[in-house]
Design a binder for these strands. Sequence first.
DNA 1: CGTGTTTGACCCGCGC
DNA 2: GCGCGGGTCAAACACG
Length: 274
Amino acid sequence: MELGRKVSLKEENGALVEELNRVSAENKKLTEMLAVMCENYNALRGQLMDYMSKNPDKELSPSRKRKSESSNNNNDNTIAMNRNSESSSTDEESSKKPREEVIKSKISRVYMRTEASDTSLVVKDGYQWRKYGQKVTRDNPSPRAYFKCSFAPSCPVKKKVQRSIEDQSVLVATYEGEHNHPHPSQMEATSAATRSLNFGSAPCSASLGSAGPTITLDLTKPKSSNNDARSSKSRMEATPEIRQFLVEHMASSLTKDPNFTAALAAAISGRMLQ
DNA sequence: CGTGTTTGACCCGCGC
DNA sequence: GCGCGGGTCAAACACG
């Protein structure tokens, strides 16, 4: 009967709407997961740098530097910075002489996907930043924001945040230097990170189809060889082995593929835009 | 009133 | 030397 057909059509319509809602929710969840992954990556990266800077005992004089672009790509690994905060650039108050630059700061680039409507160029990486400038650059119509770590001048880390010219919903954060202090807001960052992704206890895998590379983090069987007691004193809520493994895994991934995060963010955002 | 942000001015390196 | 452009400073401003 026609009535029955109408009813079934209506049911089908409702089912479709429900499916749409479900897909939308899933999309949203994936977006959140991506953001969380980026947060986790940033946190892990910081821990990795912290860890690696504790092991090598190279004597390098920390010097703040202005621009360190000479020939390097975005992930040169000059990681053995001296982390002594007292001697870092607060001593001599030379106003205009060029500071000697023995080593370059570590420069890393992080791609962070945000809402396109989010106009604040804020990349939540767990650290506190103070904005000190904003410029419109030539190659990108989006303004570039300049941040210093709130622990400055004892912490010389700076970052630049600018929207990607290709995808306005992707923030490109360029970090210069390394934090010589633990996460000031480790709890907030951790809670935010574990809000929707249980990071320490569940296996985490992210795989992308045709659009990009397949990246899988298998946390089911971490190595249990060594744990860094010093770094675990302040921020080890998840299992140290898991974090250790994650750090090593991330390090190896990044070593093999410097554009790891770029590819990940670009691929996922591209699929989400479809 | 203290703290963080905004924004125009200034500095400085680099290419011509 | 000069102009351009990216990076930084600092006074003004906003906000709690």
